Amino acid sequence: MTQEKFDTIYQRAAERKGGESSLEARLHQPLSSEEIVKITNNQWLAHFTMKVFQCGISWQVVRNKWQGFEEVFFDFDPELLLMLSDEQWEEKARNPKIIRHLTKVMSIPANAQMLVDASYEHDSFSKMVANWPKDNVTGLWEYLKKHGNRLGGNTGPYALRQCGVDTFILSSDVEAYLRNTKIIDSGRNTKRALKAADAAFAKWHQESGRNLTEISQIVAYSFGENRF
């Protein structure tokens, strides 16, 4: 099946959302590369931790506890957190100011180490992300999955989007569209599927000049139940 032209997708999304002006008003924009570079390791770790804890429970429950998280985990300073012993981490995991879940708590030092390691290798984690090739954004997802902890599936991509990184998301609606149009025909996180998704979004980017964040939202609005 020939890949659908982006303009066709856009027009369908506009029709479903009350016209082009209404559709455009719904679109969120990513940060620029210059803005991404300014994100601190503390901010990255906070966003990664929030998404890890939001997985499987109400996002609002995590938000309601967030002040406690910031207090217990030193405002997510990776250098300070990596000085803690295993016993201290176990103690923090029992603190009633946070959501007590040892496995998820232990993702924090693992992801802190990823940030510190990337900073040594690339000068900063933010510079690595800002310079990541746009036609291989799923490679960045794989980096988070391989070097981080509990950042596989959609957790890593949603954390990146929350930080303002330009990335598409394989949300329920986007995945359904890609399957319906035969762009992907294997497991969502297989190399084959991710490569096909990268190629499709790169082609739509070339056609439209739009960023991946916009394209992802427009694809979602053009198909399915729009839970995006």
Rank of each mutant, 00 (worst) to 15 (best):
F201K: 10
S126M: 01
L160T: 02
L80G: 10
A200H: 08
I99V: 15
K182W: 15
G187N: 13
I169Q: 07
D185P: 08
Y177L: 07
Q3W: 05
E70N: 11
F228N: 11
I215E: 01
N154V: 12
L194R: 10
D117A: 04
R100A: 07
E70Y: 02
D75L: 09
A202S: 13
N226Y: 06
I36H: 03
V37G: 00
V129L: 04
R210F: 14
F201P: 00
D75N: 14
T40D: 00
Y177V: 04
A25W: 05
E15C: 13
H28W: 10
E79S: 13
D135T: 04
L140K: 02
N211P: 03
R12V: 10
R12M: 10
T8F: 08
L23D: 14
L170N: 08
G68N: 05
R188G: 06
E15Q: 14
L31Q: 09
I169S: 03
A110Y: 12
L31V: 02
E214Y: 13
Q54N: 08
T155Q: 11
F53N: 04
P78K: 09
W204T: 07
V165S: 00
Q43P: 09
A200I: 05
G187R: 15
D123G: 05
L140S: 02
D7K: 11
Q88P: 00
R12T: 13
S171V: 12
L151Y: 05
P30R: 03
K195G: 12
S119N: 03
I99H: 11
I98K: 05
V116W: 10
R26P: 10
E35C: 00
G153W: 01
V62D: 01
T2Y: 11
D198L: 01
R227T: 15
R227K: 14
T138P: 00
N189W: 15
K38T: 06
P133Y: 01
M83V: 08
N64M: 13
S126R: 05
K134P: 00
Q54T: 04
Q162M: 08
S216A: 06
L140N: 02
Y143N: 04
G156I: 07
T213S: 09
K203E: 09
Q3R: 15
M1E: 15
G139F: 05
I108Q: 04
F48S: 03
W66D: 10
D117C: 01
Q29N: 07
N189H: 15
L194V: 08
I184S: 09
F201Q: 03
I39H: 00
Y120P: 01
G224Q: 12
D7T: 15
V219L: 10
G209L: 07
A159V: 03
H101C: 02
W141G: 03
T103E: 13
H101Q: 03
W132K: 07
L102K: 11
I169N: 02
S107C: 06
I57P: 04
R210M: 09
K191P: 14
N211W: 01
I99N: 10
F74H: 10
N131C: 05
S171D: 15
M128C: 05
L115S: 01
Q113W: 13
Q206C: 08
E225Y: 14
D77H: 06
V61E: 06
L140G: 06
A199K: 14
H205D: 01
F76C: 01
K182N: 15
R179F: 08
E90P: 00
G19N: 09
G224K: 11
A199R: 13
E91M: 11
